[in-house]
Design a protein around this nucleic acid. Structure first.
Lengths: 209, 209, 209, 209
DNA sequence: AATGAATGAGACTTCATTCAT
DNA sequence: AATGAATGAAGTCTCATTCAT
């Protein structure tokens, strides 16, 4: 029953048509290079019309991206809180176990607007979302490093390696979202990768001892 | 003996000074948003001067990025050729074994100009290098899929999963390069991740049987 | 019993509310820079509503300013007529005597809508009222010059000086109106200044002989 | 030998031609309503050309007006300092005597660029010079009021009247400048008016006693 | 080899005004 | 009577690019 194709703008509200057009233009050109006039014209209006609905080009961009960005940040904060609730000494080791089960939730958040996700990751230069993934990665790294200093067997696996693995994990996640694969595939892939990581990391740790 | 700092433009040729300045500006603003005038001024010239050395802004960008882009593409082609030389039936399984040993070479290629690599991955919107990583990923996926259709035991591990794992691997590689870590750390991380992947994938395959 | 404050728009007619809001906006921004939308919104309507009552922004401006402008012009014409009724030879000398007694009337006209007066003087750039004071001054100057050529003792006081004195007088008058002082103070000031002028001019004339 | 008429832009530098054109446009339309494009075109260029010489429309406006504005403010500060050097008790009465002799200097400052003066007074809405005359008047009023509170015979003439007289004096001065009369006439008028004021005020004071 | 002047297209944004409802 | 949507012209400003010197 998915009745509406991407280019079928006929029966949408003006605001929605603008957003739909903006989504496509931002995806194609990125925030900075997407001309407002093209956004307006593709939506079937003149550029002045946009300003009846959005205060600025940036505002329009955020109308698309903020819902996803804010929701995912909130979810990550919750996960971090859950990690912090773990006993300090085992926190480092248990991070993966805490993290992985939340992956489907994160996937669902990002899939709720795949284009928005792609925009945040790929087309946000010149907006407040620029460097979004880097900030997430930084926070993860900080969390991991903090846990590592409090861990019993800190260093049994190189902290940097752990760091990179987590980054790679998150990065792969976003790649998957923007790659266009469907939800089930993404979840399955993430789980498989999760297993690969767990087995691999465990093996790595034993070897280090 | 690395005598020259990044900001020491005094004794470089005009062309090199322009390239050096462009490198920094492109990194800071991205290709589209970097003003030619700023590039010129930071190099100690006026913007007109650039056009004595480069036909256009794009040309200047490619002067920085093409060497890396072309070299890495060539290397990947070689690796692919090596894979194609494997017997069809085992090709799928052996891809990892073929791939991993070349990682240090790829690292060295990318590290030869870390900024250029970063530009290709991060700041190339609006140029022919836009989507560089995606194209590499696509080619990898095609190669894997081709191998899978010819494999004896295709599906012993989900083709898609393999695909994503390879993607994640490449992606992590580029992340590492642009993260600023030094060569030894990068190599070590890649090897560790390689081991994680191998152990994990092997375990996954046994489980599937 | 002045029951209504400036911001109490509740029980006014739509037209009056628009005019009231326009008055404030024109005062704050000037005619050109005052946005019609702000005028409308401050009045509690949308901008389209204005055009049910006024043909254009300019029309709205004139709805506020024309009553004052026209009344004062008419009054000045009457005064001029009264001057012209004086015998030619003494007309120059008697101009002041004719003029001064009318000042309170002029004051009352201008004070009937102090904001409108201010708008005409200060915020009318881009309208037909631009240069209103200059035009009045020009007419005064013409009148004086005409009288001077017919006067017995023309030049007993420099014609230009007389001209400027009259101008200064009018100018001071408008300054007083727009300065916010109350009617009594304004009248008193004008009378005082009138006496200063009379005494001063008389002295000047004696000296010239 | 004044060889150049206002419209003879042929042999001027680009910057000067832009300034000359801007002067005329600002005079005709005021700062806000003067279109940069017209300024540029009247000067014989495209609008982009202006930005090689001025950072913004405002900057261009100030290039014309600041020299006059700053010089006159400085001069008035000097005069105020001279007044402050008077013994407190006679300061109020001596203000006129201190002020009048400086009038020719002020006239010369303003006549150095009559158009700029006109712009500051008449066309500066939307710039930092908006309300220039009001600020000067305020400062004068403050000075007078201060002197009045310290005077021996404060109130022998109504403070407000004195205030208005001074304002009228300054106002007349600027009117004269912008009226187009020549220097000698202006000086002569100001002196005559000065005498009128002195005689008139003295008479007023005697009468009050 | 390099400058500095200038262009011309195009960027975002504002706003008076119209009109169907 | 009033709205709300939309227009279209115009606004300031940026920038890659050209070219005479």
């Amino acid at each position: 029953m998915a009745r509406r194709k991407q280019s079928d703008l006929g029966d949408m509200s003006t605001r929605d048509r603008i957003i739909e057009s903006a989504r496509n233009c931002f995806l194609e050109y990125g925030f900075q290079a997407a001309p407002l006039r093209k956004i307006a014209e593709d939506a079937g209006f003149t550029s002045g019309a946009l300003f009846g609905y959005f205060d600025s080009k940036e505002d329009l961009f955020y109308a698309i991206t903020d819902p996803i960005a804010e929701t995912v940040v909130k979810k990550l904060d919750e996960i971090r809180a859950e990690m912090d609730a773990q006993p300090e000494k085992q926190r480092l080791n248990s991070m993966g176990q805490v993290y992985y089960p939340h992956i489907p939730e994160i996937v669902d958040i990002l899939l709720a607007d795949r284009d928005a996700t792609k925009l945040i990751v790929t087309g946000s230069k010149g907006t407040k979302h620029e460097g979004f993934l880097d900030r997430i990665a930084d926070r993860n790294a900080t969390e991991i490093n903090k846990a590592a200093t409090q861990a019993e067997n800190a260093g049994s696996i190189e902290q940097q390696t752990m760091d990179i693995l987590m980054d790679g994990y998150v990065s792969t996640l976003f790649n998957l979202i923007t790659s266009g694969k469907d939800r089930d595939t993404i979840i399955k892939c993430m789980e498989a990768i999760g297993r690969v990581y767990e087995v691999g990391i465990t093996a790595l740790m034993k070897k280090e001892k």
